[in-house]
Simulated assay, not measured.
Amino acid sequence: MCTEGGSYMLDVLDTYSGGWNVLLIALLECIAIAYTYGVCRFIKDIEVMITPTGCFPAWYCFKYWWIICWCFFTPLLLRL
């Protein structure tokens, strides 16, 4: 966005990339992860991807926060 056409690109992105369809897709993704696939299974998949070697120890402190966000906060905020 730092070139001469940057303001044009910003205008195009601002006009065509947002709206209700993005909110609907985000809500459906949260429902699919939290309720269809299952939060516990998704958490286990993430733990397999980051490996239990301690490369990201904050995950074990905050994984319950993410569960609450995926199941309750994000779908409620997207519905407002």
Rank of each mutant, 00 (worst) to 15 (best):
M1H: 13
C2E: 14
C2W: 07
C2F: 11
T3P: 09
T3H: 08
T3C: 14
E4L: 13
E4A: 15
E4V: 04
G5L: 12
G5E: 03
G6M: 11
G6S: 09
Y8L: 06
Y8K: 00
M9H: 03
M9C: 09
M9Y: 10
M9T: 04
M9D: 12
L10G: 01
D11A: 14
D11M: 12
V12S: 01
L13C: 15
L13G: 10
L13Y: 13
L13E: 06
D14K: 14
T15N: 10
T15P: 00
T15H: 08
S17I: 04
G18C: 12
G19F: 15
G19A: 15
W20S: 08
N21D: 02
N21T: 09
N21H: 12
N21P: 00
V22A: 10
V22Y: 05
L23G: 11
L23W: 04
L23H: 06
L24P: 00
L24F: 03
L24T: 01
L27N: 01
L27Q: 04
L28M: 04
L28S: 12
E29Y: 09
E29P: 05
C30R: 01
C30G: 01
I31N: 04
I31T: 05
I31S: 07
A32K: 09
I33T: 03
A34W: 12
A34D: 06
A34Q: 08
T36D: 02
T36Y: 12
T36F: 14
Y37E: 02
Y37L: 08
Y37M: 06
G38V: 08
V39T: 12
V39K: 01
V39L: 13
V39M: 10
C40Q: 15
C40M: 15
R41W: 03
R41T: 02
R41N: 05
R41V: 05
F42D: 05
F42H: 10
F42N: 06
I43L: 15
K44D: 15
D45W: 08
D45F: 06
D45R: 13
I46A: 04
I46N: 02
I46Y: 00
E47I: 05
E47V: 00
M49E: 07
I50T: 07
I50K: 10
I50M: 07
I50D: 05
T51W: 02
P52G: 13
T53L: 06
T53D: 15
T53R: 15
G54V: 01
G54Y: 07
C55F: 07
F56D: 04
F56V: 07
F56N: 11
P57W: 00
P57I: 03
A58I: 00
A58W: 10
W59E: 00
C61F: 10
F62P: 00
K63F: 09
K63Y: 10
K63W: 15
Y64P: 00
Y64D: 06
W65L: 02
W65P: 01
W66D: 04
W66E: 02
W66V: 03
I67F: 00
I67L: 09
I68D: 07
C69A: 12
W70Y: 13
W70V: 04
C71E: 03
C71H: 03
C71Y: 00
C71D: 01
F72N: 07
F73Q: 05
F73H: 08
F73L: 09
F73C: 09
F73P: 00
T74G: 01
P75D: 10
L76K: 11
L76H: 11
L76P: 08
L77C: 09
L77E: 07
L78V: 11
L80S: 08
L80M: 02
L80P: 07
L80A: 10
